[in-house]
Lab assay of single mutants.
Amino acid sequence: GSVVKEKKEKALIEVRPYVEYYNELKALVSKISSSVNDLEEAIVVLREEEKKASEPFKTDIRILLDFLES
């Protein structure tokens, strides 16, 4: 629970300088966080969101995924 939350919060802070739609990304992460149990599940849902998103938000999600998977 809290470790996953920390990882996601740290990821958002780390990617902030590189993303165009930070507030939207943060809102998406919050929405996903409330419906998943762990980081792996969150990553799966983020990948689905990435497929549906259009640029440049798609790239923002990709940047976040790269950080979460590192």
Rank of each mutant, 00 (worst) to 15 (best):
G1L: 04
G1A: 12
G1R: 01
S2P: 07
S2Q: 11
S2L: 08
S2T: 07
S2Y: 02
S2N: 12
V3K: 12
V3S: 14
V3L: 12
V4E: 14
V4A: 10
V4R: 03
K5Y: 13
K5M: 14
K5V: 09
K5T: 13
E6R: 03
E6V: 05
E6C: 15
E6S: 09
E6M: 03
E6A: 06
E6D: 14
K7E: 15
K7M: 15
K7T: 14
K7W: 15
K7H: 14
K7P: 09
K7V: 15
K8Y: 15
K8T: 15
K8A: 15
E9T: 02
E9I: 07
E9H: 07
E9P: 07
K10S: 11
K10A: 14
K10R: 07
K10P: 09
L12G: 01
L12M: 05
L12R: 01
L12N: 02
L12C: 09
I13P: 01
I13H: 11
I13K: 12
I13F: 04
I13Y: 05
E14H: 14
E14D: 06
V15R: 01
V15H: 01
V15Q: 01
V15D: 00
V15I: 08
V15S: 04
V15C: 07
R16T: 02
R16N: 03
R16H: 05
R16E: 10
R16P: 04
R16F: 05
P17Y: 05
P17R: 04
P17G: 04
Y18G: 03
Y18D: 02
Y18H: 06
Y18S: 04
V19E: 01
V19C: 03
V19D: 00
V19Y: 02
V19H: 01
E20Y: 15
E20R: 14
E20L: 14
E20S: 15
E20G: 07
E20K: 15
E20F: 14
E20A: 14
Y21G: 05
Y21N: 14
Y21S: 07
Y21H: 10
Y21W: 05
Y21T: 03
Y22A: 02
Y22V: 02
Y22Q: 01
N23W: 09
N23Q: 12
N23P: 06
N23V: 12
N23K: 05
N23R: 06
E24S: 04
E24H: 05
E24T: 04
E24P: 01
L25P: 00
L25R: 00
L25D: 00
L25M: 01
L25Y: 01
K26R: 10
K26D: 13
K26Y: 13
K26F: 08
A27L: 11
A27C: 06
A27S: 08
A27Q: 10
L28F: 02
L28R: 00
L28Y: 01
L28E: 00
L28W: 02
L28M: 04
V29W: 14
V29M: 11
V29H: 02
V29D: 01
V29S: 02
V29P: 00
S30Y: 09
S30F: 10
S30T: 12
S30L: 13
S30W: 09
K31D: 11
K31Y: 09
K31W: 09
K31I: 09
K31M: 11
K31G: 07
K31S: 10
K31C: 06
I32W: 03
I32G: 02
I32D: 02
I32P: 02
I32A: 02
I32C: 15
I32F: 03
S33Y: 12
S33L: 11
S33I: 13
S33D: 09
S33W: 15
S33Q: 07
S33T: 13
S34M: 11
S34W: 07
S34I: 09
S34V: 10
S34D: 14
S34E: 15
S35A: 12
S35I: 08
V36S: 07
V36Q: 03
V36P: 02
V36E: 04
N37V: 05
N37K: 09
N37F: 07
N37L: 05
N37G: 12
N37A: 11
D38W: 09
D38P: 02
D38F: 05
D38H: 09
D38N: 11
D38C: 07
D38L: 10
D38G: 09
D38Q: 05
D38E: 08
L39C: 15
L39I: 09
L39S: 07
E40Q: 10
E40C: 08
E40F: 11
E40H: 10
E41R: 05
E41A: 08
E41N: 04
E41V: 06
E41Q: 09
E41T: 08
A42E: 07
A42N: 02
A42V: 15
I43C: 12
I43T: 05
I43S: 04
I43F: 11
I43R: 04
I43K: 04
V44T: 09
V44Q: 10
V44M: 12
V44F: 10
V45G: 11
V45S: 11
V45P: 05
V45I: 10
V45Q: 14
V45N: 08
V45K: 12
L46T: 01
L46P: 00
R47Q: 08
R47I: 08
R47M: 09
R47W: 14
E48S: 10
E48R: 09
E49T: 06
E49F: 07
E49Q: 04
E49S: 05
E49D: 03
E50T: 06
E50M: 14
E50V: 08
E50H: 11
E50Q: 13
E50A: 11
E50F: 09
E50S: 08
K51V: 11
K51G: 11
K51W: 10
K51A: 13
K51Y: 11
K52Q: 11
K52I: 08
A53K: 04
A53W: 06
A53D: 01
A53I: 04
S54E: 10
S54N: 10
S54H: 09
S54K: 07
S54Y: 08
S54F: 10
E55F: 10
E55K: 09
P56H: 07
P56W: 08
P56I: 05
P56A: 06
P56N: 04
F57G: 02
F57D: 01
F57H: 02
F57W: 05
K58S: 13
K58R: 12
K58N: 05
K58D: 02
K58F: 02
K58E: 01
T59L: 06
T59N: 13
T59A: 11
T59I: 07
T59S: 13
D60C: 07
D60R: 01
D60I: 05
D60V: 03
I61P: 00
I61C: 02
I61G: 00
I61L: 04
R62C: 11
R62V: 06
R62E: 03
R62Y: 05
I63S: 03
I63M: 05
I63T: 08
I63K: 05
I63H: 04
L64V: 02
L64N: 00
L64M: 06
L64F: 15
L64T: 02
L65Y: 03
L65T: 14
L65A: 12
L65M: 06
D66S: 14
D66N: 11
D66C: 14
D66M: 13
D66H: 14
F67C: 05
F67E: 06
F67V: 12
F67G: 02
L68D: 00
L68S: 01
L68W: 06
L68E: 00
E69Y: 08
E69A: 12
E69H: 11
E69K: 08
E69W: 08
E69M: 10
S70L: 10
S70H: 14
S70E: 07
S70G: 13
S70C: 13
S70R: 09
